[in-house]
Simulated assay, not measured.
Amino acid sequence: MALKVKLVKSWAGAPQDQRDTVAGLGLYKMNSEKILKDTPSVRGMIAKVQHLVSFEEIPGDAPVRTRRKGKAGQKAKEA
């Protein structure tokens, strides 16, 4: 199960801990959306800023984030 979280209200003027929570969810601009894994920690973060976000449960799993190799990784591979 995954959760689709959307920032529906501006977090300007919100306390710093709520700003950090919204940023921790990966939401930075109005109407931005993220698909996150349904875990107790994510549910707690949503509950903390429930007046700023909306969410819905979606079937399936959240996409897995992969790391990209930058130029440093390519140089090390060539050497």
Score class of each variant (00 low, 15 high):
2 A>T: 02
2 A>N: 13
2 A>D: 13
2 A>H: 10
3 L>M: 06
3 L>S: 03
3 L>N: 03
4 K>Y: 00
4 K>H: 13
4 K>P: 00
6 K>L: 11
7 L>N: 07
7 L>S: 01
8 V>K: 12
8 V>D: 13
8 V>H: 08
8 V>G: 02
8 V>A: 14
10 S>R: 04
11 W>M: 14
12 A>T: 13
13 G>P: 13
14 A>G: 06
14 A>F: 01
15 P>R: 07
17 D>H: 04
17 D>T: 01
17 D>W: 10
18 Q>G: 02
19 R>K: 15
20 D>E: 14
21 T>M: 13
21 T>E: 14
24 G>R: 04
25 L>E: 05
25 L>P: 09
26 G>R: 05
27 L>T: 11
28 Y>R: 14
28 Y>G: 11
29 K>L: 13
29 K>S: 02
30 M>A: 01
31 N>T: 07
31 N>W: 02
32 S>T: 12
33 E>F: 00
33 E>A: 00
37 K>N: 03
38 D>R: 05
39 T>Q: 00
39 T>A: 02
39 T>N: 07
40 P>T: 01
40 P>V: 04
40 P>I: 09
41 S>M: 06
41 S>A: 14
43 R>L: 08
43 R>Y: 03
44 G>D: 11
44 G>Q: 09
45 M>Y: 04
46 I>E: 08
46 I>A: 07
46 I>N: 02
47 A>H: 01
47 A>W: 06
48 K>C: 00
48 K>N: 06
49 V>K: 09
50 Q>S: 15
50 Q>G: 09
50 Q>V: 03
51 H>C: 09
52 L>C: 12
53 V>Q: 12
53 V>T: 06
54 S>D: 15
54 S>A: 09
55 F>S: 14
55 F>H: 10
55 F>K: 11
55 F>T: 07
56 E>I: 10
56 E>K: 12
57 E>M: 06
58 I>A: 12
58 I>V: 12
59 P>A: 13
60 G>A: 10
60 G>H: 14
61 D>T: 09
61 D>V: 01
61 D>N: 14
62 A>R: 08
62 A>D: 07
63 P>Y: 03
63 P>K: 10
64 V>G: 00
64 V>K: 15
65 R>P: 02
66 T>M: 09
66 T>Y: 05
66 T>R: 08
69 K>L: 10
69 K>V: 06
69 K>S: 09
69 K>H: 10
69 K>C: 02
70 G>V: 07
70 G>F: 03
70 G>Q: 01
71 K>W: 06
71 K>Y: 09
72 A>S: 09
72 A>K: 12
73 G>V: 01
73 G>S: 08
73 G>N: 07
74 Q>S: 07
74 Q>Y: 05
74 Q>V: 15
75 K>G: 01
76 A>T: 11
76 A>G: 01
76 A>N: 11
76 A>Q: 10
77 K>D: 03
78 E>Q: 14
78 E>A: 12
78 E>C: 00
79 A>Y: 05
79 A>I: 12
